[in-house]
């Protein structure tokens, strides 16, 4: 069967606490932490961007796949923070990792869903027989405007997945996408920060697409909530994915290992797929995972995976997500944070 042969993630070491941001704006830290269920988030270093995060994640995926990089036939990076408006992130990545030049490369954008979209296309290539291996990556150094609720969640990180037919560690059992034009969240060209519809981002946007995608994906796989060991839903904050999961009949036990948003924040294109990566780190043969992304604008991709006997052979071949999430953290002040994120005007 076609499935994942290698996966890898990367999170920057820098963090800012919810309480640090709340203090800056005179918000009540406790109510924010409880309301959004976020205690801290990742911040990219001054020398990190979507490309460097993607390279680090893809390097880990290649280490787990143990294949010659030249065999990879396609690389797609999904992000809403590609460093160039015109010039692909993917070309930089392939030359850094020794992939190509015989490779199909494209950058994707679909708000927080671009990463799962990249996986979807990579998987489809292999399934169709176009190529033996294809890589889908989701990574972001997302921006939230100072003082906006998004500032508490917009974080940095990413994950990469290599699809293939041999030595598969997790088979793809089913896929499904659910998409409509819904103006819940957007960023116009040349604008630094996104805008959003406040509570409109909830029921008509996030929940409508996530729940529809999840239900049909499970139907296509002929499975119910109890057939899964883990379920991961896109994590714009801590509360939405737990509510979506509960509505679909999932328990906290099925969701807690992929629910990393309280410490990571929302890594946009790298959000749900990095939760999935943290689950792959502990997944056992035969166990199944439901992954449902969400991207504003809006749409959701659903995947059902089932681990093979191969999975335990690759888990230790690259750094694990929980280690990156919980160790070697460097905390920033709000002043350092705005300088790191270039939220203040610098001279030329």
């Amino acid at each position: 069967m076609v499935g994942i042969v290698g996966y890898g993630s990367y999170l920057p070491r820098y963090r800012i606490k919810t309480s640090t941001i709340a203090e800056q704006w005179g918000d009540n830290a406790d109510s924010i932490e409880n309301g959004l269920m976020l205690t801290e988030k990742t911040v990219p270093g001054r020398d990190e961007d979507t490309v460097t995060i993607s390279v680090a994640a893809a390097k880990n995926a290649l280490a787990r796949a143990g294949i010659d990089p030249k065999l990879i036939g396609a690389v797609y990076i999904g992000s809403e923070s590609h460093p160039y408006a015109v010039k692909p992130s993917g070309t930089i990545l392939i030359d850094a990792l020794g992939i190509g030049p015989e490779v199909h490369v494209a950058d994707f954008e679909f708000a927080c869903k671009a990463g799962s979209e990249a996986m979807f296309v990579a998987y489809s290539h292999v399934k169709s027989g176009n190529m033996d291996y294809a890589m889908g990556i989701g990574a972001d150094t997302s921006q939230g405007a100072p003082g906006d609720a998004l500032e508490y969640s917009a974080a940095a990180g990413g994950s990469a997945f290599i699809f293939g037919k041999e030595n598969v560690i997790a088979d793809v059992i089913a896929t499904y996408s659910y998409t409509s034009d819904t103006a819940d969240f957007w960023r116009r060209d040349l604008q630094m920060y996104p805008r959003h519809g406040g509570r409109f981002t909830g029921e008509p946007a996030y929940f409508k697409h996530v729940l529809n995608a999840a239900q049909v994906t499970m139907e296509k796989a002929n499975m119910k909530a109890q057939d899964f060991k883990y379920a991961i839903f896109h994590m714009p904050n801590g509360r939405f994915p737990l509510k979506a999961g509960k509505t679909l009949g999932f328990t906290d036990a099925q969701m807690k290992d992929g629910w990393i948003v309280n410490l990571m924040g929302n890594t946009y294109s790298g959000s749900s797929i990095t939760g999935f990566s943290s689950v792959l780190d502990i997944l056992k043969p035969g166990e199944r995972v439901l992954l449902v992304s969400f991207g504003s604008g809006a749409g959701s991709d659903g995947f059902v995976f089932e681990a093979t006997d191969q999975i335990t052979k690759v888990q230790d071949k690259a750094p694990k997500l929980r280690d990156m999430l919980e160790n070697n953290r460097i905390y920033l002040s709000y002043g350092q944070y705005v300088a790191y994120r270039k939220k203040i005007l610098f001279n030329d």
Binding site: D47, E48, D49, V51, T52, V55, A56, K59, P83, D348
Partner: peptide
């Protein structure tokens, strides 16, 4: 040694 951004040539 890790892959990073070294510098940007202006805006």
């Amino acid at each position: 040694l890790v892959f990073r951004k070294i510098k940007e040539e202006g805006h």
